[in-house]
Amino acid sequence: MKKELLIIITLIFTFNLITLAQQSKSRNSDIQIQKTWARPAVKYANSALYFVIENRGGKIDTLIGAQSNIAEETEVHESFKKDNDKIGMRPAGRIAIKPKSEFEFKPGGFHVMLLGVLKDLKIGDKIEAVLLLKYAGKIKVKAEVRDMPMTKEMK
């Protein structure tokens, strides 16, 4: 009985370790970056990085920028609608992440632009970027290049 209990505890501990390793955390663990992925792009074309920022802490934090070594420029942008059927894109500025909340960067909305990628980003490739938050500091983000999720998943 004791042996079975030990195995279960070990399994739970291992699972938690794996889960934690898959998430990008800030120094104080209040900010979690999850569900990261990036679009495929040809060398010198543009890609976009998507993710969910979760603020588990009790105070507001602010995304103030992003950095990466895989693109000529890295900027936080927002797609916006105009006159019902038109779409444009603009720099997003600073984005407040409220306490105990999630903020989703998703297709058709906020995203980190990887402008002029320095190599082909093929489906399955892994990339890294850094998100800059006012209080949490620099958070390293790992993302897989993959095909678009189904439209329904994005709603």
């Binding site: 000529e72 444009g88 402008l115």
Partner: peptide, 25 residues
């Protein structure tokens, strides 16, 4: 379909790319 240039990015190399406000169609 409407497509008009809006913002642009100028890279360190001098390369310039434009973005469009366009009909999503």
């Amino acid at each position: 379909v409407m497509a008009v240039t809006s913002d642009s990015t100028i890279f360190k190399s001098g390369r310039k790319i434009y973005y469009y406000i366009h009909t999503d169609r």
